[in-house]
Amino acid sequence: MFKLYLDPGHGGSDTGATGNGLQEKDLTLDIALRIRDLLERDFQDVDVRMSRTDDVDRSLSDRSSDANNWGADYFLSIHINGFDGSAQGYEDYIYSGLSDSSQTAQYRDIMHEEITSVNELSNRGKQKANFHVLRETSMPALLTENGFIDNTNDAEKMQDSNWLQTVAEGHVNGLARAFNLQRSEQDEDQDQDNDTVYRVIVDGTQEGAYREHQNILNAVSRNLGQADSIVIERV
């Protein structure tokens, strides 16, 4: 049984970053719930525990202690970035005291590759930090920053439920690959070719790269009314 502790950042009186009419706490919860639902629907022997499932206050020490006491195999914290409106893109963090050859870093490398292959955000790279939830958890831990809420381009994506679903799927793809999760029998029948990645190229520029067929269709639908050319290409 793979035990995932899933942590939607902020909540309650702590809104997190804000911008463009959005609040980080709402987006992190939305993405995390989608991750949970995908894992529970599509995979065998996965147990997901969340630090919160609604808009409540939860201290950092509560989150790390809860994960430690539960005996989680992996701690995944979902966040949205903010700066001054000029920065944009995706980045993720492991604890600053770990080496690049550590098990946590190896899991991070897989997660980073899978998430950035589908999230349509500029890649700001793999980072390290002394964040509480990375330092005080006793299992491998990763914190993902899924775009900048105060950047107009990133925020436009955050308002699209299809994009939020794609981001969740990127995280799930990473977890499945890093921890060798087995798909449920009915899901194997439906998605037997799910390892194949397809690029969606709009007017000569790659719009995204997707494994899930529905994400390919969503990308085509988003651009159908305005593009002169849409090409789907197997990677």
Rank of each mutant, 00 (worst) to 15 (best):
F2C: 04
K3S: 04
L6M: 08
D7T: 06
H10G: 05
H10N: 02
T18D: 03
N20Y: 15
E24I: 02
K25I: 08
D26H: 11
L33R: 10
L39E: 00
F43E: 05
D45Q: 06
V46E: 02
R49F: 07
T53F: 08
R58N: 08
S61H: 04
S65Y: 08
D66I: 10
A67D: 12
N68L: 11
D73M: 05
D73N: 13
L76S: 01
S86P: 05
Q88V: 04
Y90C: 00
Y90P: 07
D92C: 13
G97L: 12
D100K: 14
S101A: 05
A105P: 01
Q106F: 03
Y107Q: 06
R108T: 06
H112G: 04
E114C: 09
I115K: 08
V118C: 14
E120S: 13
L121E: 09
N123P: 00
K126P: 05
F131R: 05
H132W: 03
E136F: 12
E136H: 06
E136L: 11
T137N: 14
T137Q: 02
P140Q: 02
P140C: 08
P140W: 08
E145K: 13
N146Q: 08
F148N: 07
F148Q: 11
D150G: 01
D150S: 06
T152C: 01
T152I: 15
A168L: 07
E169R: 15
E169V: 10
G170E: 01
G170A: 02
H171Q: 12
V172A: 12
R177T: 11
N180M: 10
S184Q: 12
E185I: 09
Q186E: 08
D193N: 14
T196G: 04
V197W: 14
V197C: 07
I201A: 05
V202N: 03
D203A: 01
G204I: 03
T205F: 10
E207T: 00
G208N: 11
A209I: 09
E212G: 00
Q214E: 12
I216C: 10
V220A: 07
V220K: 09
G225D: 09
S229M: 04
R234E: 15
